[in-house]
Amino acid sequence: MSETIFKRFHGDGFGPEIVQRDLKQTEGVSFFGYIELLLKDRRRLGDLLLDERRSLEALPKLLGVAIIGFAAYGLIISTVFRLSGTIDTEVLKSANWIAVTLSYALGLIGAVCVCLPSFYFYALLAGVRASMPQVAAQSVRALATTALLLLGIMPIYVVAIIGLYIGGSAWRDLYALLLNAGLALPFVAGLFGVITFYLGFVDLSNTLPSQRYRKCGKFLRFMAVCQSGLYAVVAPAMIYALLNSFGHFFSR
């Protein structure tokens, strides 16, 4: 049994393309199913999130992926710092592993909570008839993508750190540099998340009729870039603020 999930409009003037999916393939996707979709079939996940009913179902599961990914990153990075014992940053000196883990997990997701009304407003301004849950689902999808990528990068990072540590004094400078660079890893992985978010937003715009799409296509892309930029500014500020607060709280 197949179901027409939504109508995707083309900007080429040849009218709408009907996107059909098999109901059996998309109904009741499990938590691991979403991880698989994030890794293997992002296009299908994007199509699925365009359906509001499915985006409501996907939201907690994608958020779960993001929480696990960021928490794992926080644990690993704080362990690496703890074992290395070479922390130069004032903020990190006072922070313990719980503070680092909480700051990254809450900061990266909390930044979406802060930006969500703006994202919705931008979408409306660009003329996209997306509902608030759809915008939330697209944002959380970007977070989940970042978290998964971060989990993929972490083993490589840890191996590189251990390798440089074993290398001894000859590699000391590079070791210190790489150690500090670990804190910026979520932002490196975040670039991919930002791209996913941008593509998700452009996907939402594909539901516009072709005439309207042609009229406001450029503005809409500009709005998508603004949204991504806003998150890229808010997230580091939020992590820094949380790291500071949690650091003082847990060091008492």
């Binding site: 509001e52 409501l56 939201l59 907690p60 608030m132 849950p133 939330a136």
Partner: peptide, 10 residues
């Protein structure tokens, strides 16, 4: 909760 609020009012 800000992420889930829209799902409740939608």
């Amino acid at each position: 909760w800000p992420i889930f609020l829209p799902t409740l009012i939608a």
